[in-house]
Amino acid sequence: MSVRGLARPIVRAAALGLLAGAAAADPAPATLDGLMAGMARATGVLAEFHETKTLALLSAPLESRGVLHFVPPDRMVRRTLEPAPSSLVVDGRRVVFRDASGEAPVDLSGDPSARQFVDNFTTLFRGDLPALREKYEVRFRAEPPGWSLELEPRDAVLRRFVASLTLSGEGERMREMVLLERDGDRTVTRFGRVETDHVYTPEELSALFGTGEAGAAAP
């Protein structure tokens, strides 16, 4: 249950890590090695996202918009602005979620799924292809001017829920990520206005991560 529940944000955010690297790569990656090398060169990412969730439960898809911040080597904030503000903050080994309900932030650091998320994320950021291959079956296709990277989880529990995660882009840009679940639920995230060379100021970092508690970023 929890694995599946967290699987979507995990792989989504992990893929956003890929976004950072992909967008930073120049020229456009023609190989998987090139894509991973580009990720490793990312200096800081700021991107907008638009997510569409098509769930079996709902008559119509759920849509959300927000901003992604990535600070090398291991810090990230995913801020959802619409329809309901929330934030997911990763600060090193800590993972904290908070929404606008006014309830206390939820520390997910002890959750094994969150642990997996952090591991996946750092693996991707490091451009550690062997580790990525250990966790996923990796299929990279270069179809000029576009490319796609399909990840299929190797972990048996994750495989029960997640069918695949597909990242795609054109040239230097990653445009889309598609998460396909076994039950047919589908999440499509499109990225725009990507800055891959953003340098975060101390003030921005303080606003995003605070000085003490992770999750300082307001939803």
């Binding site: 967290l6 944000p9 989504r12 439960l57 997911l88």
Partner: peptide, 18 residues
Amino acid sequence: LRRDLGLPAGTLLAEVAP
């Protein structure tokens, strides 16, 4: 529930909500 399904952590509910 609808709002929670749209949140990253809220997707925990996707399987159990039905």
